[in-house]
């Protein structure tokens, strides 16, 4: 016997994501989801930006996602902000239930923003809504200027892209023109931030972006 159901299904992950969005809206806390390959410089961006944002008065907490170890959380803890490490084992992304649980460990009333460093991976984290206000793509010069074309989805979803390790451009065949063209072919209104965490070059516009 066949029975018509005709129902939209909410993916289990999206239920948790919606809860997070609701919760943070009532608390007035913004949530950013940083996505980039292993070694792109995600933690380095946080290490550079968090002290600058704190100077401006921003109250920040960080969620670190990695397959293994608390190494990144330890790096962030030295900046004197609340940080929780999630280890995913072989899991290649954070999901919304993990993030929802961890949010319960922060005093949200004492925060302005929570920044998630997702597991190093340019593909899988894109498909998992964490309830964040926005996804931000982080990509480094050494990955090559064609990566937006090869892994376009994150660059379609992320309004802001941070290109890290620009201090290395002279030592590689990276073409900023080709990179920008590739980005614009996916999303013309993209905001591109050029950054070197080694020299600090490019940090001002980013501070402005996170804390206008």
């Amino acid at each position: 016997m066949e029975i018509k159901v005709m129902q939209n299904v909410l993916k289990a992950n999206d239920v948790f994501a919606e809860n997070t969005t609701e919760l943070l809206k009532t608390k007035g806390v913004r949530l950013f989801n940083l996505i980039g390959s292993p070694g792109a410089g995600k933690t380095s961006v946080l290490e550079l930006m968090i002290p600058l944002l704190k100077d401006k008065g921003a109250r920040i907490a960080v969620i670190e996602g990695d397959c293994a170890t608390a190494r990144d959380a330890q790096r962030i803890a030295t900046l004197d902000v609340p940080v929780v490490q999630i280890n995913t084992g072989n899991g290649c992304h954070l999901d919304a239930s993990q993030v929802g649980k961890v949010l319960g460990e922060f005093s949200l009333d004492a925060l302005d923003m929570v920044i998630i460093e997702n597991v190093g991976n340019l593909v899988c984290p894109t498909g998992f809504d964490l309830g964040a206000d926005e996804k931000i793509a982080i990509i480094s010069v050494t990955e090559g200027d064609d990566k937006p074309l090869k892994y376009p989805r994150i660059f379609h979803e992320a309004k802001a892209v941070i290109l890290t390790k620009i201090d290395l451009i002279p030592y590689t065949n990276f073409s900023l023109q080709r990179f920008t063209d590739a980005l614009r072919s996916i999303r013309q209104d993209q905001e591109l931030f050029l950054l070197s965490c080694t020299t600090g070059e490019g940090s001002d516009p980013l501070v402005e972006r996170f804390w206008p």
Binding site: M6, Q7, N8, V9, Q188
Partner: peptide
């Protein structure tokens, strides 16, 4: 020729019907 788009279709998840034993 402009890149300013969104995904219009292709993210649906919909249960149409189920079949059960009479």
């Amino acid at each position: 020729g402009v890149s300013d788009s969104h995904i219009e279709r292709g993210q649906s998840l919909f249960v149409n019907q189920i079949e059960v034993e009479e």
